[in-house]
Design a protein around this nucleic acid. Structure first.
Length: 483
RNA sequence: GGCGCCAUCGUCUAGCGGUUAGGACGCCGGCCUCUCAAGCCGGUAACACGGGUUCGACUCCCGUUGGCGCUACCA
């Protein structure tokens, strides 16, 4: 591939980054990185009513968190900016004026009410509602008069005079009939461009080569190609990626669970896992590999393997992918991501090495970082809280014997506790007492952690350290003695 | 309503005229194991329907059905 591809992701800043948007951004990013091209980020904030600066910040943060770095855009700069549509008003106006001068567009003074009446009339007659061209050949005098009445015009582009066909990279040949579209608005009466106009002006001027976006924009493509042609620009290659849908096949909705990247982050999904899972929605690895690092994805990504059918979001599989990433990503990375989860739950470990050891041990059984506090609780605090089943293990005769003997043995034999030494000491106790297996391990586990489930016991003891092991064994023994 | 897109196990998907239709998640068993996971082994389960085209269709064409999208001075 050449290094000249230019793609963009163009979110509207109306909230946190949506999971569907994240997937679109990801495919653009993967394509850019795979081809050595440029990934542009553009903020589509022409809808002033819904766009906010906070949302823009949130979206930027979400993208950065996912690791989808952009080469041009807000904060990154670039020589084809500005990268916010709200800062490009002049550019749209110039382009619209040009079309007006060239007679390819015209001012329309029809009011909403007039338009609404016509629309209803058309619908009533079973016709496709589209602009009837009332203002098409409007005279300068009429314009003057309408303007003096206080009417502010919109700018309309002439609808297509021929069918519009194009080749979509994932959908193949797509064709729209000319009669489907009337003269449509490109500039609103307040001077702001409409979406379909702004997008084309921006994509053309930013020299975007591949427009990779969600399928919901497929129908818009007819309008946009018309704008490209009228403006005298060459349309880019279009790539319409399928939508991500809910388990019930409807549009992904908030009410059925998390839908924003931020929400998944809060639950403890790793950015690498989200990127990995999202890549599998509508794309597949040539060798069917499923657990993939960012690098592997960049390396293997190919638009030719993007599927055209909508994909249902499956949180079970996301969790599975996440568990893999928690286990397989570099420990230091996982530790860094895990720390806030621990600290928020009150588990603050001053010693970074000990904390890393704890995370390194419990990550084997973690599906989400949100489950971390529960798992690491056993390493914190002086008092062990016993689950009832665990209590039974230390209370029985053999159990209490194991606990007492183990305490003595640890005190006598071990200066430092490694997983190996702890295990051999435990086994020694077992031999002495004639106890093995569950009857040996469970009392020890229960005394040390208060639980009957958990990570490998030797490792747990090693992280606890000799002193704490002794304390906990003593206190379990006392507990038994007091009965 | 009109136009467009989509259609393989419950879910994500492989397949690109000839396959016992493959893999993954989930689920169910087994092994391993102090426990829970992980891991390994095995099982469950699909070409929406109807017409063509062809010696031969999951694959190509048409239609039906269903899902979704667009149909705005929202993006």
């Amino acid at each position: 591939m050449t290094g000249s591809t230019r793609v963009r992701f163009a979110p509207s800043p109306t909230g946190h980054l949506h999971i569907g948007g994240a997937r679109t951004a990801l495919f653009n990013w993967l394509f850019a990185r795979h081809t050595g091209g440029t990934f542009v980020l553009r903020i589509e904030d022409t809808d002033t009513a819904r766009s906010t600066a906070e949302s823009e910040k949130a979206v930027l943060e979400d993208l950065a968190w996912l690791g989808l770095s952009w080469d041009e855009g807000p904060e990154a700069g670039g020589d084809r900016g500005p990268y916010r549509q709200s800062e490009r008003r002049e550019i749209y106006r110039e382009q619209a004026d040009r079309l007006l001068d060239e007679g390819k567009a015209y001012r329309c003074y029809c009011t909403d009410e007039e338009l609404e009446t016509k629309r209803k009339g058309a619908l009533a007659n079973g016709l496709v509602p589209q602009y009837d061209g009332t203002c098409r050949g409007i005279s300068a005098g009429d314009e003057e008069r309408l303007r003096s009445e206080g009417r502010a015009p919109v700018v309309r582009l002439y609808g297509p005079t021929e069918d519009i066909a194009f080749e979509d990279l994932v959908r193949g040949a797509v064709e729209f009939k000319k009669g489907m579209l009337g003269d449509f608005v490109i500039m609103r009466s307040d001077g702001r461009p409409t979406y379909n106009f702004a997008v084309v002006v921006d994509d053309a001027l930013m020299e975007i080569t591949h427009v990779i976006r969600a399928e919901e924009h497929l129908s818009n493509t007819m309008r946009q190609i018309l704008v490209y042609r009228t403006l005298g620009f060459e349309p880019p290659t279009f790539v319409h990626v399928s939508l991500i849908v809910d388990k019930d096949r409807s549009k992904l909705s908030k009410r059925r669970g998390a839908t924003s990247v931020a929400e998944f982050r809060e639950q403890g999904f790793l950015p690498g896992a989200i990127v990995n899972y999202l890549s599998l929605l509508g794309w597949s690895h040539p060798e069917a590999a499923e657990v993939l690092s960012r690098e592997q994805l960049v390396d293997a990504f190919d638009l030719a393997r993007v599927s055209p059918s909508p994909a249902a979001f499956d949180e079970d599989k996301l969790s599975w992918v996440n568990a893999h990433h928690i286990r397989e990503e570099p420990l230091e990375r996982v530790v860094e991501l895990a720390r806030p989860f621990a600290e928020r739950a009150g588990f603050v470990e001053a010693d970074p090495e000990r904390f890393a050891a704890i995370v390194g041990l419990v990550r084997e059984g973690l599906e989400r970082l949100g489950d971390l506090p529960e798992e690491i609780a056993i390493f914190f605090g002086d008092e062990v809280e016993f689950e009832s089943e665990a209590r039974e293990w230390v209370e029985g005769e053999t159990g209490s014997g194991v606990v007492r003997e183990l305490r003595t043995a640890v005190e006598r034999e071990a200066e430092a506790l490694s997983p190996g030494t702890f295990k051999s000491i435990l086994k020694g106790v077992g031999r002495e007492l004639g106890v093995k297996g569950k009857d040996l391990f469970m009392p020890a586990r229960a005394a040390l952690t208060g639980r009957t489930h958990g990570p490998a016991l030797g490792e747990v003891a090693a992280i606890l350290g000799r002193e704490r092991v002794l304390t906990r064994l003593s206190s379990a023994a006392e507990k038994e003695a007091r009965r």
